[in-house]
Design a binder for these strands. Sequence first.
DNA 1: ACAGTCGGGACAACCCGTTACT
DNA 2: AGTAACGGGTTGTCCCGACTGT
Lengths: 182, 182, 182, 182
Amino acid sequence: MGRSRPPLRDQLLEASLRLFAVRGYRGTSLQDIATEVGCSKASLLYHFSSKEAILGELLSPTAQAADELNERLAALPDDQVTVAAVEGFVELALRFRREVTLLLSEAEEATKTPVFDKSPGDRLVHELAARSAREPDRLRAWMVLGAVAVACASGPDLPYEEMREQMVSTALRMLDPGAGGA
Amino acid sequence: MGRSRPPLRDQLLEASLRLFAVRGYRGTSLQDIATEVGCSKASLLYHFSSKEAILGELLSPTAQAADELNERLAALPDDQVTVAAVEGFVELALRFRREVTLLLSEAEEATKTPVFDKSPGDRLVHELAARSAREPDRLRAWMVLGAVAVACASGPDLPYEEMREQMVSTALRMLDPGAGGA
Amino acid sequence: MGRSRPPLRDQLLEASLRLFAVRGYRGTSLQDIATEVGCSKASLLYHFSSKEAILGELLSPTAQAADELNERLAALPDDQVTVAAVEGFVELALRFRREVTLLLSEAEEATKTPVFDKSPGDRLVHELAARSAREPDRLRAWMVLGAVAVACASGPDLPYEEMREQMVSTALRMLDPGAGGA
Amino acid sequence: MGRSRPPLRDQLLEASLRLFAVRGYRGTSLQDIATEVGCSKASLLYHFSSKEAILGELLSPTAQAADELNERLAALPDDQVTVAAVEGFVELALRFRREVTLLLSEAEEATKTPVFDKSPGDRLVHELAARSAREPDRLRAWMVLGAVAVACASGPDLPYEEMREQMVSTALRMLDPGAGGA
DNA sequence: ACAGTCGGGACAACCCGTTACT
DNA sequence: AGTAACGGGTTGTCCCGACTGT
């Protein structure tokens, strides 16, 4: 009955995510997080063994979702992978919006976390490029990644479905060399 | 007598840029920079009054270039501004590649610097969206910003001209709602 | 149902003695002890009001034995006290071997404990010196104390009887100024 | 006009030695040392990279002297080594009296220091036992070690020459099985 | 109901070491 | 060469709820 887990732990995670996103990982001290929640720093470190552990726990669901997405994409034939990759990534980025913001600006720190051993970002770029190894294809794939991530991080706040559609269609247009330019 | 090696001041700026990009602004200490160049911490602080000043000086040319670009764009009629904005931003991002990488991951820190009082990024988004206030247009503009910035930061290393063309054409495709989508 | 394992309290004392001897008093945390035994730190502090109390309880039997020894020695005439003191101290050191090790390296901490108000060590030195106040006699008495204590702490592990004999005879030789030297 | 007071670095070493001997290594904080000398903690850490480094530097001369003694002893024939070892060790212990006190009570910490890679104590015991591997001989050697160390640490404060003679003759008596016992 | 036992959660004070800066 | 302020992390200690067996 009711929530089984203690609230403080979740409060701490929530506050950490908020502060990390605003001031950055290094820019946020354990004291900041504790003060925000209203508990002592020692209490914080009772729940999480270290600052890095907080980041890990914060990013782990996102990493897992990304891994699952990559797994799903790996099973698809080449001609279907692009659309699926775009849709999958856009949905993931919208679902873990703040986490993606974090990853964008704290990439260096995040990769030290054991959660991101095999960088899911690189695998995703591979699929977005329709498994092509051609440099122009890879460049466009990186652009898609950046477009979606930055839009989620800094873009305007539209309703979910509208944002999803806009981002998916724009991203597909980026990847279609046949479409019209100027 | 000709200078045998670049003056210390320039060496320090170069080393700072390199280290900031790799370890982040807060992740880099004054000691790190001094050690990298091989001079004393006191010498460093003789040339730059504070750590923040280094970041400011590092970003100032980029900010100035962005301001000039925005000035130029402001003089253009609505139907020409999109193409000009895209081409201008891509060229700027390529010219100040490492600086843009820094800005991307240290946005919070950078905005504290007096150089970026009136965020040139926001103005640029305004122009990229062809001065439209419609949210979908602004969203696409942010996507272009992210696409170009991330591609410069993490994308593959292609020759200048090839990279420029690819990025410009892809960005224009993003902004053209008439082109083919799903 | 007979108790399957020794009661928690005794387990804690045993673990404390072992850990104190290896890592030192300050080098051992309450968490270490609790973890070693497999109970919570709070449980530990239910049985012992403080860390110092553990040390006190650990050392109290040794202190009591030393006091009794001193009492016994006090009743002896001067010409018998040396042999009795040596034999008594050697046996005591062997019986409380690990405790003596602790006392040797944590003397400072131990003396803060109320158990050791009137240092039994000083009284023992007095007896070992055959109640002489001459400095050379006192010096030799301290040497005996150190010899036996260090041998118990760091020396080889011989059978009880052999160790006892060796230590007693060696100690008596130390105290006999008439015996041959260089 | 000669320097009015010793340079800060030496003051710090002196204060560290004094405090370590009284309160123990772990019982002494960097703040304690800094306060004792009257400088800031950061100043302390400017001169010594860590707390462990202070201990290392404190013990290094003693370790070197012990190594030299062991080297000298190694070159002696078996029948001369005992006397030389005793005299050498006594003189060393008197010369580095406070350091030996430290080693006696902080053995665990000291052995972590790189200065004491190959424990000079074990080598010294080997020589004091006249290179015998017999357990009783080794036991007596440990007793000598303890006797001298503890006498220096806790014994009365006699003039150097008197103390030296007393300790040497007593130690030799310990090691001579032929001398009178029970 | 009640004393004895145990543990999850919390905290003040402190630790060693680093930072930007003088 | 020197420092104040802060960094992350650990210490010993404690509160209070939840189990025993009686």
